[in-house]
């Protein structure tokens, strides 16, 4: 039950669905094409490689969603995440802090300066330390602007990361995992296969061994992060990568790590690399 793609697994999924939940039918479509506003084609299926020896192919979480959820992401007007991205665009040009500067003052138009930034996140900073996008944003605020740090999952931060991520939409995920990044990547990989909590489940138990199945009436995806930040219908708001990790670990009834912890940065790098070649969708819609 590892392949989403072949028609046969689709039939299996439907059977599993009935068996596990009693819900009659659902319509995730492994052959669906993600096209934004009829113009921008995004890659939702990418070939596997040595990073993911146990995945025959890489799939965006978008493929596992019901048609209504998928449709909401295909139209920028209907995608509620765009409200956050617009708020982020406003923040980009708003001066803040003792230096009286805005992001725009140093970085210019985000369309140019931030293109590709999401696709390469997280990456090592100048001191060789692994940072997530939130770290870079807050470092600019506290060290360069003389402004207060934003909360990791606060409205301002998620609006800003939505806006910045949008500038990489359609670009393939491509993170550095060798050289000085290698120890972080290995730490992340070890976490991915660690069984957490009373349920003794690892990320891999669900997102590598069981994707395509239903769990609590939710279609299990490969747990990719190419779509982040994500507008979750459940939260009616933007969810950060670390927030999602936290929820997933909590579901195994384990103590979880904090957003912005070193553990989650390392895990983010590893999970990002598992999606190499998939398009950045930021900002996506998920249930």
């Amino acid at each position: 039950m590892q392949h989403l793609k072949p028609a046969k697994s689709f039939a299996l999924t439907a059977a599993a669905l009935v068996a596990l939940t009693g819900v009659a039918m659902a319509d995730p479509d492994p052959t669906a094409e993600l096209v934004i506003d009829g113009e921008l084609h995004l890659v939702t299926r990418a070939p596997s490689d040595a990073i993911t020896p146990n995945l025959p192919e890489r799939y965006s979480g978008w493929l596992f969603r019901e048609s209504d959820t998928r449709a909401m992401q295909m139209d920028d007007f209907e995608n509620p995440a765009m409200l956050a991205a617009e708020a982020g665009a406003d923040l980009w040009t708003t001066a803040d802090g003792t230096a009286g500067q805005s992001c725009q003052d140093c970085h210019g138009d985000a369309e140019d300066s931030m293109a590709g930034v999401r696709a390469g996140m997280p990456h090592l900073n100048a001191d060789g330390v692994l940072w997530s996008m939130e770290d870079y944003v807050n470092n600019c605020r506290t060290e360069r602007m003389g402004a207060e740090a934003w909360r990791w999952s606060g409205d301002e931060m998620t609006s800003m990361t939505s806006f910045i991520s949008l500038q990489s939409r359609g670009m393939p995920v491509s993170v550095q995992i060798d050289g000085d990044a290698a120890p972080y990547w290995e730490q992340g990989r070890d976490m991915y296969y660690t069984r957490y909590g009373q349920l003794e489940l690892s990320c891999a138990s669900c997102h590598e061994e069981s994707y395509g199945l239903m769990i609590r009436a939710d279609h299990l995806s490969q747990g990719q992060i190419n779509g982040f930040p994500t507008y979750r219908l459940k939260n009616a708001g933007i969810v950060s990568i670390h927030n999602r990790f936290r929820g997933c670990i909590r579901d195994t009834r384990a103590e979880t790590f904090a957003e912005g912890s070193d553990e989650f940065r390392a895990l983010e790098l590893y999970v990002a690399s598992r999606g190499t070649g998939l398009s950045i969708e930021g900002v996506s819609v998920r249930p």
Binding site: T21, D218, K234, D251
Partner: peptide, 10 residues
């Protein structure tokens, strides 16, 4: 309209 409980993963 069938509403699935969903919302796994936080």
């Amino acid at each position: 309209v069938k509403v699935t409980i969903g919302g796994c993963g936080g």
